[in-house]
């Protein structure tokens, strides 16, 4: 099962857990699954059916340009990280 790493700021939604193993073959499925067991996580990460603009997902260390649509392997590590933009503006406003 893929392992999702929960950023410090989200851990009150995960009952303090830093890592959670979740079923799913895409980032979207993983977030849905997480939201079942830990309600609120989806609202934290997703807006208008996509990741919030200042959040990126990194799967196995590689930041995905397709966000929720990214495929995830069974042994993957999934991290939600701050989006680094081309040098300015929105991407720098928030850390996850």
């Amino acid at each position: 099962m893929p392992t999702v790493f929960i950023p410090g700021s989200m851990r009150e939604l995960s009952a303090g857990q830093a890592e959670i193993q979740v079923q799913g073959s895409t980032v979207r499925e993983i977030i849905s699954e997480l939201d079942e067991s830990h309600p609120g996580i989806k609202d934290w990460l997703v807006e208008d059916n996509r990741l919030k603009p200042n959040i990126s997902v990194a799967v196995d260390g590689v930041v995905s340009p397709v966000g929720l649509l990214q495929d995830v392997e069974q042994d993957s590590e999934v991290h939600f990280v701050a989006a680094i933009s081309g040098g300015c503006l929105g991407g720098m406003l928030a850390a996850v």
């Binding site: 603009p53 200042n54 989006a83 933009s85 081309g86 503006l89 929105g90 991407g91 720098m92 406003l93």
Partner: peptide, 10 residues
């Protein structure tokens, strides 16, 4: 409103 600039919103 937020402006989505294709590389982050502001």
């Amino acid at each position: 409103q937020m402006v989505d600039l294709g590389e982050g919103a502001m």
